[in-house]
């Protein structure tokens, strides 16, 4: 084993052991894009260290945990009732121009011009027509103490198809907290996303200042009226855009992805009094 292989093996071992920080682990997660040996190496270590879990005695969780999981999935799956959540009125079939602060549209256009990277490349290769931007996802980090159920959620973006027909409304349900969570999006199906039974729509964060770097947020609901909560895997302010791609059923781990069907920018600066 040469030095490079040795370093890589050590990194994989530390990763599997749990000795890396969350940031280091997320960075290591990107290695499989350029290194086909990375994933098998991780699996090799995982398989050999996993018996250590046998040292820890199992413990029965209380029934309330499953009830909470069911309730959370119920929000995702039924869309019939979402406690404490006001998703607002569904927009008409064709949404009017989004009212925004002066300067925001200009900023958006400038951002649009600057973002000629990964997603546009993917778009060109796509067999699916690109949807237009419906709105800018506006994210203003709030001081923790200002967050209350009455403040949130706020519908901050509507994702449209290429005919400007709204498909999903995106609300910011929770911003990050001081406990280190990164907040949640609430996605409501307001139109009729087109896909067949073997496909899923998947949302991605396109990360700022990191070319071609994306992170999965989760699968989107597709039945009209359905609501799904998506826990952000990292701060929303890390993203320059949110994008939706069409994937095989169940989605893909990324970063490779299918055709992009819609996207929206995330603007985190130069905005005041948005909420």
């Amino acid at each position: 084993m040469n030095t490079t292989d040795d370093d890589k093996d050590s990194l994989a071992a530390l990763y599997t052991l749990g000795a890396l920080s969350e940031a280091e682990r997320l960075e290591a997660d990107q290695r499989h894009k350029t290194d086909p040996q990375w994933q098998p190496l991780l699996a090799w270590w995982q398989q050999r260290l996993d018996p250590l879990t046998q040292l820890v005695p199992p413990a029965a969780p209380p029934p309330s945990v499953w009830q909470k999981i069911e309730a959370q999935l119920g929000e995702q799956l039924s869309g019939q009732h979402v406690p404490d959540v006001d998703v607002g009125e569904l927009p008409p079939h064709r949404s009017p121009p989004v009212s925004q602060e002066p300067g925001l549209i200009e900023e958006t256009i400038e951002l649009w011009r600057q973002r000629a990277r990964y997603w546009q490349m993917a778009t060109l290769a796509s067999v699916v027509a690109i949807a237009s931007i419906a709105a800018v996802l506006v994210f203003k980090p709030l001081p923790f103490q200002l967050q209350s159920p009455s403040d949130l959620p706020v519908t901050v973006a509507v994702l449209q198809n290429e005919d400007n027909v709204p498909l999903w409304a995106v609300s910011l349900r929770k911003t990050g907290t001081d406990s280190g969570e990164y907040g949640e999006l609430l996605v409501t199906v307001v139109g009729e996303p087109q896909l067949d039974s073997t496909q899923s729509h998947q949302m991605w964060m396109v990360l700022k200042d990191r070319d071609e770097d994306v992170q999965s947020v989760g699968l989107l609901p597709d039945e009209t009226g359905e609501v799904r909560r998506l826990v952000l895997p990292r701060p929303l302010s890390d993203a320059s855009e949110l994008a939706v791609s069409l994937e095989p059923k169940g989605g893909v781990p990324g970063p490779e992805h299918g055709p992009v069907v819609t996207r929206t920018f995330v603007v985190t600066s130069k905005i005041s009094n948005v909420f």
């Binding site: 994933q39 098998p40 991780l42 699996a43 995982q46 398989q47 996993d50 969780p61 209380p62 309330s64 945990v65 909470k68 999981i69 959370q72 999935l73 995702q76 899923s200 999965s216 989760g218 699968l219 998506l230 826990v231 095989p248 059923k249 169940g250 989605g251 893909v252 781990p253």
Partner: peptide
């Protein structure tokens, strides 16, 4: 309990990303 809940939400949302080459 919170960790277990989040784990199963991740399983629900991301189980499609599992493949045998991941162990």
């Amino acid at each position: 309990e919170e960790a277990l809940q989040e784990t199963f939400i991740k399983v629900w949302n991301n189980s499609g990303s599992y493949s045998p080459d991941k162990g």
